Computed example of a mutant assay.
Amino acid sequence: MESKVVKCSDYEWDSVSHKEYKDDQSCYKGVQRYSLLGTRNDEQALNFETRYFEVETGGYTSFEYHRHPHSVVVIRGMGTVILDNEVCELSLHDVVYIAPNTLHQFHADHGESLGFICTVDRYRDRPTLPDKDKIDDIVESEKVRKKIKI
């Protein structure tokens, strides 16, 4: 891999196009994904992927879980994240660790877009959308149940 800098201006990176967040558009609202590092042929030496997600005002990511952990750093706006049975407030530069098998969902619910860098292993399992039984087993909080978007 050749060393390089990918320049950014107003949350748009040179030669990095945004993509729909997921193929199934029914499980989220207003989310764009940018694969910044780790997905192109010249970056195969990396064992991870660095991605940027932007959730538009009023939007949310899918409510999901998976076997792999990942980390998130908020670099734009404010919002909330559901982590299993808890709703956590997020603001600029907050860092989130999502442990394996944790139900999670990000919300841009503070009147502005929520943007975050997400780092994951290059080789990982696919996210799973929980069924009603899984949600009932884990989520006891009425506040969380009302917040979940499916």
Rank of each mutant, 00 (worst) to 15 (best):
T61S: 15
D84W: 02
G77A: 13
C88P: 00
L36M: 07
E142G: 04
G115L: 08
K22E: 06
D23P: 06
G79Y: 04
V139I: 11
A45G: 03
V72P: 01
S26H: 03
E56G: 02
L129V: 15
T57D: 14
I98V: 15
K146C: 10
R67F: 00
C88Q: 10
I138C: 04
T119E: 10
E49L: 09
P69G: 15
Y60S: 03
S141E: 03
S9Y: 05
T119D: 06
D24R: 03
R76E: 15
M1G: 15
M78K: 12
C8F: 10
I75T: 10
M1E: 07
R126P: 14
D24S: 02
E20N: 04
I82F: 03
E56W: 03
K19W: 04
S9M: 09
V31L: 03
L46C: 04
Y123T: 03
G77V: 03
P127S: 14
K22Y: 11
A99Q: 09
D24A: 06
V16R: 14
L36A: 00
S91N: 10
I135Q: 11
S35Y: 09
V120W: 12
H70W: 08
Y97S: 13
D137C: 09
K149S: 07
V16L: 09
S15R: 02
T102E: 07
K146A: 14
Y28P: 00
I98N: 13
D94P: 10
V87H: 05
L103G: 08
V81K: 11
L92W: 05
Y123V: 13
L92K: 06
K146V: 07
E140C: 09
V87K: 07
K7T: 04
H107A: 01
V95W: 09
S9D: 08
H104W: 03
K147L: 01
Q32G: 08
D109A: 12
K29G: 02
T50H: 10
V73K: 09
W13R: 13
Y123C: 04
T80H: 15
R124E: 14
P127A: 14
